[in-house]
Simulated scan of single mutants.
Amino acid sequence: MTAPAWGTDEQSGRPRTAQHYTVAPAVGAPEGYVAPGMPGVPVAGYEPVAPAARLRRPRRRRVGLAVSVAVAAMLLGALACGCAPLRAADSVGWLAIAPAAAVSWPLGRLGGRSRVLPLLGALLAAGALFLGQLLLQGRELRARGLSGAPLRAFVHDVLAAWRADLRPLDLVFYGIALVGGVILTRRTATRG
Rank of each mutant, 00 (worst) to 15 (best):
W94P: 06
V182D: 00
T188M: 00
S114R: 00
V34Y: 05
V69T: 09
M38Y: 13
G45E: 03
R57S: 11
L178I: 05
V182S: 00
G181Q: 03
W105H: 07
V43P: 04
G121Q: 02
V23R: 13
R87V: 09
P30W: 09
R16E: 04
L79C: 12
Y21K: 03
M38T: 14
L119V: 10
L131M: 13
R113S: 06
G132F: 05
G64F: 14
A128S: 14
F173I: 02
L107P: 05
A66E: 07
A96P: 02
S12H: 13
C81T: 07
V172N: 01
G112Q: 00
Y46V: 11
D157K: 12
G180F: 01
A160T: 15
A161T: 06
R186C: 01
V172W: 03
V49L: 12
L65C: 07
A24T: 13
W6T: 15
A50F: 09
S68L: 04
D9N: 14
L95H: 11
L110W: 10
A5K: 10
F154P: 03
A125F: 08
R54H: 15
A102K: 02
L86M: 03
A78Y: 03
R152F: 08
Q133R: 13
P4M: 02
G108A: 06
A161L: 08
R14Q: 15
G7F: 08
L75M: 02
D157S: 11
A72C: 07
A24C: 07
R191F: 09
A102N: 01
R139G: 01
D165C: 05
A53F: 13
L75E: 00
L110Q: 10
T185N: 03
L75F: 02
L79F: 10
P25N: 08
L151W: 15
G132T: 06
P106I: 15
L107K: 04
A122M: 04
L123V: 15
V43G: 06
G93T: 02
G121P: 05
P99I: 06
G181N: 02
L75I: 00
A80D: 11
P36T: 05
R152M: 15
A29R: 12
W105S: 07
V69W: 07
L171N: 05
A80R: 11
M1N: 08
E31H: 14
V41N: 00
P48W: 06
G93C: 07
M74S: 05
V182A: 01
L178Q: 01
G82C: 11
R191T: 10
P51Q: 05
L131D: 10
T22D: 15
A73D: 04
L135R: 04
P15R: 12
A66Q: 09
L129Y: 08
E47S: 07
